[in-house]
């Protein structure tokens, strides 16, 4: 328990500090992406027009790639002297945090601030990406065994999807805590596969036991699917993606929620089609799995349409 207390308080501290991280300096009132290749900055006091207009004073890069400087096309100060519009030669990747450095503006020293998407927008985009754009079944091709095995009936599909979502969120949260506070400090991250699969099995066992005691009715309807969940690639993929992209806790939570929801969506869509397929006249060679694969292929083509979807 003692080990757990520090991480939890650290998480809350990080949550409290988030708004402060978004607004860098008092001199800058706001900085946000505008359009595809622009950044709009609002200053608290009017600044020198000629200095602000010199492109060579600015250095802009993505936070995780400080060596790659982005080329600025123009910097235009508004007539009130407070709103600055930066235009870049190429479109910006607004999913990344950008750092802007300006020489000799304002107090004379170097001005330095970060531009990022609104944090909740960022979290929401992770959720939508896992749910639709990178749907785990139709665009990442994970968990197909369970997907084809349990999508024959709508009722089963719904139960399975809900159980998957619960287990995914629980196991991803646990994996994140373990990864951040045990594996990384002790440089054991090469053991991540062994640790994550152990944690997933443990979570499934825990959900099984807790559900049996707390809500026997729910257990009777969902319990049978729990056995199928243990060694499944969708569940183990979430912690692996989390560790490779270095997500923080909220991002991991959103990824797991989106992945689970996406799996539920895929199962529900597929089971609706398969219930109807039973009434259709199918050539004997295509009965069963072959026709299910072809239906899934059509769904996958339809899900390609979500690529490039951006809400924030």
């Amino acid at each position: 328990m003692k080990i757990l207390k520090i991480p939890l308080s650290a998480v809350f501290l990080a949550l409290l500090l988030l708004p402060a991280w978004l607004q860098a300096a008092d001199f800058i009132e706001s900085a946000a992406f505008s359009g595809k290749n622009g950044i709009a900055v609002a200053f608290a006091v009017p600044v020198d027009k000629t200095a602000a207009g010199e492109v060579s004073r600015y250095t802009v890069y993505e936070e995780n790639d400080p060596d790659i400087k982005l080329s600025l096309a123009s910097a235009a100060l508004g007539s009130d002297g407070r709103s600055l519009q930066l235009l870049f030669a190429e479109p910006l990747n607004s999913a990344k945090t950008h750092v802007v450095r300006v020489q000799g503006l304002g107090d004379g020293a170097e001005l330095n601030f970060k531009v990022a998407k609104p944090y909740f927008g960022h979290l929401f985009s992770i959720l939508v990406a896992a749910l639709l754009i990178n749907n785990f079944v139709f665009t990442k091709y994970l968990g197909l065994c369970v997907f084809f095995g349990t999508s024959k009936r709508k009722k089963t599909a719904k139960g399975m999807g809900v159980v998957f979502t619960i287990v995914m969120v629980a196991s991803a949260s646990m994996s994140w805590l373990f990864y951040q506070f045990t594996l990384i400090p002790f440089h054991l991250d090469f053991l991540q596969i062994v640790v994550f699969i152990g944690l997933v099995s443990l979570t499934v066992q825990a959900v099984d036991t807790i559900l049996r005691k707390v809500n026997p009715v729910l257990f009777n309807s969902f319990g049978v699917y729990l056995v199928l969940v243990i060694a499944n690639c969708v569940i183990i993929a979430v912690p692996l993606i989390m560790s490779s992209l270095n997500y923080n806790f909220l991002e991991t939570f959103m990824l797991a929620l989106g992945a689970g929801g996406g799996f539920l969506l895929a199962l529900y869509l597929m089971s609706s089609v398969r219930e109807r397929l039973e009434l259709a006249k199918i050539p004997p060679t295509f009965k069963g799995l072959p026709i299910a694969f072809i239906v899934a292929g059509q769904f996958a083509l339809a899900f390609l349409g979500f690529s490039g979807l951006q809400l924030f």
């Binding site: 060679t285 072959p290 026709i291 694969f293 292929g297 390609l304």
Partner: peptide
Amino acid sequence: SAGFFVVGLMMAFFN
């Protein structure tokens, strides 16, 4: 997404 079609058609072929 063509993977689904290829695998499905191959299974049908083996059947």
